[in-house]
Design a protein around this nucleic acid. Structure first.
Lengths: 213, 213
DNA sequence: CTGGATCCTGCCCGATACTG
DNA sequence: CAGTATCGGGCAGGATCCAG
């Protein structure tokens, strides 16, 4: 039950003792998007063994990072305030790892929650503040995200709704966010398929969401 | 050799594949302070098995995070530019873990490198910018750190030198940095022992290095 | 002596089957 | 749906040994 310790009195080691074990921070990543049920977490982390998921949930609960939601009818896991403070860690890790992402492989998936956190990582509030409010409907495979940019605020939710630009894209959207692939070329090469709305709004999208590679 | 993968095309998973294994980020933490030899790393991480240290060094090298230093006479490990970009990750983890540090136990040690990174984590450049340049000599157990604050810049080095305030402290210095323990009370209770210089400079230290708990 | 490599033991992880 | 039970394999932990 007690995590293996590093024998040092240090903030980094303490953090790693709490969320350093395999899969733990990915559970946190998905819960940063919103409360999730056991089955939803399992669906967002298809390769996690169910016993490991159950064990991590217990450990994270014991550490005060997550809690079972208030409603007793259905069990929902959510971050505690302390767990929510891991967001800078997840964002920093995501930004760093972004640069080491090669091209997508066929055995790699993109989940709605990981995509949501990636958008939060790449979001540039200072750039967005000078742009008119914009809503994007992004379809990644079978999942759709409703991305609303309103000044320096970003809201990402699952599902659809009224949008200014609706598009479908695969994992190669990363090359647009990194700046490797210009928006117009992304549309020309089929990496991004515009479903509805003016395609040049993808320029605004690319300047709003950007991470250097 | 190839790290176990998570099966997701995501920056966070990619990062965890590269530096998510046990001990890896602690090696990075110590190398953020400066280049280190194999034996120095082993000394800073007393509980790491030697085969694990050797394996991590190889993996981090293969990932382009560290490299063997230029001089062939003695082998030195240092961070690559990409490895140095992990500093925000380590600082964010350290700040988060800081809040979960309880009281120090007798089986926990404080190393000079972990203390150096803790100081970097707690450093407040905006506060320091308005203070006169100050040099502190801090003695933690047998190791001494020379802490120079010059405007918004912080330099921490091992060893001694001319300082404005010299003090000795144990792990409980954390309670000064967290604000739980006022500097004057820290001196009065013996948590901090002033060796040389005006004791009220510890107030300046406490306002320069602060992390909420 | 530094910088590892080698062996063995044990625990965690992974995969699957199963249950309230 | 939300986990628990069980088993095998592989990495971690610890001691020892080897090469430059």
């Amino acid at each position: 039950m007690t995590a293996r310790e590093y024998g040092q009195y240090c903030g980094v080691t303490r953090a790693l003792e709490l969320i350093g074990e395999r899969w733990a921070l990915l559970i946190v990543r998905d819960l940063l998007v919103g409360p999730r049920r056991y089955g939803e977490l399992a669906a967002g982390l298809p390769r996690i063994p169910s016993n490991i998921l159950a064990a991590r949930l217990k450990e994270l609960q014991a550490a005060g990072i997550i809690r079972r939601g208030p409603r007793s009818r259905i069990i929902v896991y959510e971050l505690t305030p302390y767990g929510r403070e891991l967001e800078p860690v997840v964002l920093a890790l995501g930004a760093w790892g972004f640069k080491a992402m090669g091209d997508p492989r066929t055995d790699q998936i993109v989940t709605p929650d990981s995509m949501t956190m990636a958008l939060r990582t790449a979001f540039r509030p200072d750039v967005a503040a000078d742009l008119p409010p914009t809503a994007y409907g992004a379809r990644f495979g079978d999942a759709g995200l409703l991305i609303r940019v309103d000044g320096p605020a970003l809201h990402v939710a699952r599902g659809d709704g009224p949008v200014d630009l609706s598009f479908a894209a695969g994992p190669d959207i990363r090359r647009v966010i990194s700046g490797e692939l210009a928006p117009e070329r992304a549309i020309a090469t089929g990496v991004v398929e515009v479903l509805r709305g003016p395609g040049d709004l993808l320029d605004r999208f690319a300047s709003t969401f950007h991470l250097a590679a």
